Deep mutational scan, measured.
Amino acid sequence: TETRTFTDEREARRFEQEARDNGKDVQVRESNGKFEVRVK
């Protein structure tokens, strides 16, 4: 599991989409204006 934290939602979404395109299981959590993207 890899976790990346972004402050920019667009960057978080781009990373999320890229991971999904690669067939990964992705979860995005938002807290305090930060976006935590977990990739399995």
Rank of each mutant, 00 (worst) to 15 (best):
R20S: 04
T7N: 10
V39Q: 03
V39P: 02
K40I: 14
V28Q: 02
E2Y: 15
V39R: 02
F15D: 01
E30R: 10
R4D: 01
V37F: 01
K34H: 10
V26N: 01
T1L: 10
R10G: 12
T7H: 08
E11N: 05
N32H: 08
G23P: 01
K34Q: 12
D25M: 11
G23N: 06
E16H: 03
E11R: 03
T3E: 05
R10S: 12
T1S: 11
V28E: 01
N32W: 04
K24S: 09
V28L: 11
R4W: 14
E18F: 12
A19Q: 13
E18Y: 12
K24V: 06
D21E: 12
K40W: 15
A19D: 01
R20D: 02
A12E: 00
V39T: 08
E16F: 09
K40F: 15
T5L: 12
V28T: 07
V28N: 02
T3S: 08
G23F: 06
R20M: 07
N22C: 14
D25R: 08
D21R: 14
G33Q: 03
G33P: 01
E9G: 05
R14E: 10
N22I: 08
R20V: 06
R4Q: 06
E18G: 05
D25W: 15
D21T: 10
N32Y: 07
E36W: 09
R10F: 11
N22F: 08
S31V: 15
Q27G: 05
N32E: 09
N22V: 08
E2N: 08
A12K: 00
D25K: 08
G23W: 04
G33E: 02
A19E: 08
F15V: 04
V26K: 00
D25I: 13
Q17P: 00
D8E: 07
V26P: 05
V28G: 02
E11W: 04
Q27D: 11
R29Y: 15
R20H: 05
E9V: 08
Q27A: 09
D8F: 04
D8C: 14
T5G: 03
S31Q: 11
G23C: 10
D25T: 11
T1F: 14
T3F: 12
D21A: 15
R10W: 13
T1H: 10
S31K: 13
K24F: 15
N22S: 13
R14D: 07
S31D: 10
A12H: 00
E36Q: 08
F6K: 00
E18S: 09
A12F: 05
R14T: 07
R38K: 10
R38V: 15
S31E: 12
V39F: 07
T3K: 07
E11P: 01
E16R: 02
Q17M: 09
T7V: 09
Q27H: 10
N22M: 14
V37E: 01
E36T: 09
S31Y: 15
T3Y: 13
R20I: 09
K24E: 05
G23S: 03
R29N: 09
R4P: 00
F6L: 00
E2V: 13
N32S: 06
V26D: 01
Q17W: 07
E18R: 09
F15T: 01
D21Y: 09
V28Y: 11
F6E: 00
V26T: 06
E11D: 10
R10V: 11
N22L: 14
E18L: 12
D8R: 03
V37I: 07
K34C: 13
E2P: 06
E9H: 06
V37S: 01
T7G: 07
E30F: 15
E11L: 08
V28R: 04
G33A: 02
D8W: 02
K24I: 08
V28D: 01
E36H: 10
K34E: 09
N32Q: 08
V39D: 02
E11T: 06
F35R: 01
V37A: 02
Q17L: 08
E30V: 14
R4Y: 15
E2I: 14
K34L: 14
K24N: 10
R4S: 05
G23R: 04
A12V: 03
F6W: 03
F15I: 03
G33Y: 02
F15L: 03
G23T: 02
R13D: 02
D8K: 03
G33F: 01
V37R: 00
E9F: 07
E18I: 11
R14H: 07
R20K: 09
R4N: 04
E16S: 09
V39K: 02
R4T: 07
F35S: 01
R29S: 12
E11S: 07
R29P: 01
D25F: 13
G33V: 00
D25N: 09
V28I: 12
R20P: 00
K24W: 15
R4H: 12
V37H: 00
E9N: 03
T5S: 08
R14Q: 11
V26A: 06
E18M: 11
E36F: 13
E30G: 06
R38A: 09
R29D: 07
T7I: 09
S31F: 15
D8H: 05
Q17A: 09
G23Q: 05
K40C: 15
E2S: 08
Q17R: 11
S31L: 15
D21F: 10
K24A: 11
E2G: 06
T1Y: 15
T1A: 11
K34W: 12
F6H: 00
V39N: 02
V26L: 02
K40D: 10
T7F: 10
E9Y: 09
E18C: 14
F35L: 04
F35W: 15
R20Y: 05
T1V: 13
A12G: 01
D8T: 09
A19L: 10
V28M: 10
D21I: 10
F15S: 02
T7L: 10
R29F: 15
Q17S: 07
D21N: 13
V39W: 07
G33T: 01
F15R: 02
D21S: 12
V37W: 02
E9T: 03
G33W: 00
V39I: 11
D8V: 04
T1D: 13
D21G: 09
R20A: 04
V26G: 01
D8S: 09
Q17T: 07
D25H: 12
T5A: 06
E18H: 10
R38W: 13
R38S: 13
T1I: 13
A19G: 03
T7W: 11
R29I: 15
V28W: 13
D25E: 13
V39C: 06
T5I: 15
A12Y: 04
E16W: 12
G23A: 04
T1N: 10
N22Y: 08
E36R: 05
V37P: 00
R20Q: 05
E16C: 15
A19M: 15
T5H: 09
R14K: 12
T1K: 06
V37N: 00
R29T: 14
E2H: 11
K34S: 10
R38T: 15
F35A: 00
R14A: 13
E18T: 09
G33N: 05
N32V: 03
A12I: 01
R13Y: 07
A19P: 01
R20F: 05
G33K: 03
G33M: 03
N22Q: 14
E18P: 00
E18W: 15
T1R: 07
E2F: 14
V26Y: 03
T1E: 13
R29A: 08
G23Y: 06
D8L: 04
R4F: 14
S31G: 06
Q17I: 07
K34I: 15
F35N: 00
A12M: 07
K24G: 07
F35K: 01
R14M: 11
R13F: 06
D25G: 05
R14Y: 06
V28F: 15
G33H: 03
A12D: 00
E30T: 09
R38D: 08
E16V: 13
T1W: 15
Q27E: 15
T5E: 07
Q17Y: 06
F6V: 00
Q27L: 12
E30N: 08
F15Q: 01
T3C: 15
R13P: 00
R13A: 06
N32C: 13
T5C: 15
T5F: 15
N32G: 10
K40Y: 14
T3A: 06
K34G: 08
D21P: 00
E30W: 13
N22E: 12
T5K: 05
T3Q: 06
E11V: 04
R29G: 05
K24L: 14
E30P: 05
D8I: 04
V37Q: 01
T5D: 03
A19F: 03
R10P: 05
R14N: 08
